[in-house]
Design a protein around this nucleic acid. Structure first.
Length: 557
RNA sequence: AGUCCGAUGGUGUAAUGGUAGCACAGGAGAUUCUGAUUCUCCUUGUCUAGGUUCGAAUCCUAGUCGGACUACCA
């Protein structure tokens, strides 16, 4: 993490601009295209843009960049709004859509033509590409490049009226066909799309391209700092050219930063969309997805996501962040905020031989040792309990602190018990562990002050609820999805064990939790009540992230 | 290949000409009614070669490596 005083390069730019009196207040924007769900990479951008506005008491606009009717849908618009709000940000009155500016952008295109800075090109897509040239070859001018303003005006009007079929004509900016920057070789700024737009319907059949629309949207809204990712660096000269040529009152400054990459995670919308369409996941909100909605369903907190975004920082060089950073952020938050419960995911019976048959006690358990205000709850205790299979070993490994014949352990919030042995079936599987308890240790403390090395969790067999538990692991088994071995399909890199569904035995209190409640299963991990598939009294639990397990490391050696 | 951008431990980042620091991960230990948490300590780094300077991670030059660009996507 950076030091308290560290300011990243964008903050420094804003500091300088404000100090120089360049702006009275700053305005940033988060401009997603509604063609997919937001993911953790967008969260980084959202935190940056809204965070800057908050820090400098400026404003941050939420703007749908809906300039391509063939790809965008209302479903995405709604999910984007929900996700930004969930992350904890508020755009206030500043919700905009590129499509709201279509008329104004169109008028500006006409101005551009009048200025002699744009012309209608009738070349086919292939011809345009052939005329484009390459790094060492300058492009060739289109036949109509030097047509008169009147002819271009007329042609653009025809385009606008729908008199040409899709692909028959485009409007191009007239800049420099020999520029070393390809984006300055007369870029296409309007194309014909005879598709209904989710917002403007059939009003238009010409739609602006991103390169043309974006600077204008920013200028119309008075954006001061237009922050985008590194790949738009080469587009900046056009961004500036357009604002200069049209002499817009506002001259927003485009600043690029490095997008987020995460280990074992795909971040491209295209791939995410394929995972959904090919049903390799249950949907955009599948808890294994790096989408905001997936992480929300998985049990991540907005605070943890924001914290993570702070941790990875803002720079101009590409990097691959370890997903462990994200996991740490969520554990750190959940540790402080979630109530603990006892659940057994791989049960084996534990019978307390000297505990009275039929007796049931209600023991007090602390909900969250990190937060006394979380209070306590009652947990039923009886002669026959269920414990984790891993908490018993007939022949113990070195430093094994759990149940093994002759060893005493504590049953959390219960009693000290001493293991007496186990019963097995014909195949040699342990079917029951037996022990005796010390009645003087009720609640979990020995009056004589003796200590035990291990504490294990349990549930009363007769009182336990039976629930579905979904154990999630990383979606991919390959670390860097941006670098895949030659000839390998990224889909084959999916982790076949990314989801396992099991049944768990839980203490009664867990059955009454509201959907989306986040809890810790003691000694196991953080889980949350699935908001979609849970039924009243029948919760489904999603594992958000496991607890750190240093014993697993020791035992694995 | 051209143009542009970048390069600090295993990972992510600080240090803005003056002691290379932080977080994660990893290791060792202490504490603990979660082998969790917490706490302590430790390992590991300035891409290379020149230059400027009393002094360079920082400035300059060249090289190397990585990324972006050659869509009627954004």
């Amino acid at each position: 993490m950076s030091s308290e005083t560290h300011r990243h390069f964008i903050q420094q730019i804003v500091d300088a601009d404000l100090a120089a009196g360049k702006h009275a207040a700053i305005a940033t924007r988060f401009p997603p295209e509604p063609n997919g769900y937001l993911h953790i990479g967008h969260a980084k951008s959202i935190c940056l843009n809204f965070g800057l506005a908050l820090e400098f008491k400026g404003r941050c606009h939420l703007r749908m960049d809906d300039t391509n009717p063939t790809k965008e849908e209302v479903e995405y618009v709604d999910s984007i709004k929900e996700d930004v709000r969930w992350l904890g940000f508020d755009w206030g009155q500043h919700y905009y859509q590129a499509s709201d500016y279509f008329a104004r952008m169109h008028a500006d295109a006409i101005r551009l033509i009048e200025l002699g800075k744009a012309y209608v090109c009738f070349l086919s897509q292939e011809e345009i590409r052939a005329h484009h040239g390459d790094e060492k070859t300058p492009g060739k001018p289109t036949p109509t490049r030097d047509a008169t303003v009147a002819a271009n005006l007329a042609a653009f009007a025809q385009m606008t009226r729908g008199e040409f079929d899709e692909g028959k004509a485009v409007l191009r900016a007239k800049i420099d066909m020999a520029s070393p920057n390809m984006h300055l070789r007369d870029p296409v700024i309007y194309r014909i799309r005879k598709t209904s737009h989710h917002n403007t319907g059939d009003t238009w059949c010409v739609y602006p391209m991103y390169d043309y629309a974006h600077p204008l949207e920013d200028a119309y809204e008075g954006i001061t700092h237009s922050i985008c990712t590194l790949e738009f660096e080469v587009h900046r000269p056009f961004y500036d050219w357009l604002l200069r040529t049209l002499d817009t009152p506002a001259k927003p400054q485009q600043i690029e930063f490095a997008r987020l990459n995460l280990t074992y995670t795909v971040m491209s919308k295209r791939r995410l969309l394929e995972l959904v369409q090919e049903k390799r996941v249950s949907g955009w909100d599948d808890p294994r997805m790096p989408t905001i909605s997936g992480m929300r369903r998985r049990g991540y907190t907005p605070a943890a996501v924001r914290r993570f975004c702070e941790t990875v920082g803002i720079t101009k060089h590409n990097s691959l962040s370890d997903v462990a950073l994200l996991e740490h952020a969520v554990r750190d938050d959940l540790n402080k905020t979630s109530s603990r419960f006892m659940t057994i995911l791989d049960p084996v019976k534990l019978v307390i031989e000297n505990y009275p048959e039929g007796q049931v006690e209600e023991l007090d358990a602390t909900n969250n040792p990190e937060d006394p205000a979380a209070g306590t709850r009652k947990v039923p205790f009886s002669k026959t309990l269920l414990i984790e299979r891993a908490d018993f070993m007939e022949i113990p490994e070195k430093k094994y602190f759990r149940l093994t014949p002759g060893q005493e352990v504590r049953l959390r919030w219960g009693y000290f018990v001493t293991c007496t042995g186990c019963k097995k079936d014909a195949a040699g599987n342990v079917t029951e562990v037996t022990c005796t308890y010390d009645p003087a240790t009720r609640g979990g403390d020995a009056p004589d002050g003796r200590k035990v090395k291990g504490t294990i969790h349990w549930v009363s067999a007769a009182h336990a609820g039976d629930v579905e538990v979904r154990l999630y692991d990383r979606l991919f088994s390959h670390e860097d999805l941006n670098h895949i071995p030659e000839g390998v399909d990224w889909r084959t890199l999916l982790n076949p064990g990314s989801l396992s569904v099991i049944r768990g035995k839980v203490e009664p209190a867990l059955l009454a939790l509201a959907p989306a409640t986040r809890v810790q299963f003691e000694r196991t991990g953080y889980f949350c009540v699935d908001a979609k598939d849970s039924q009243p009294g029948k919760p489904v639990f999603n594992r958000t992230v496991g607890l750190k397990d240093s014993w697993a490391k020791v035992a694995g050696k």
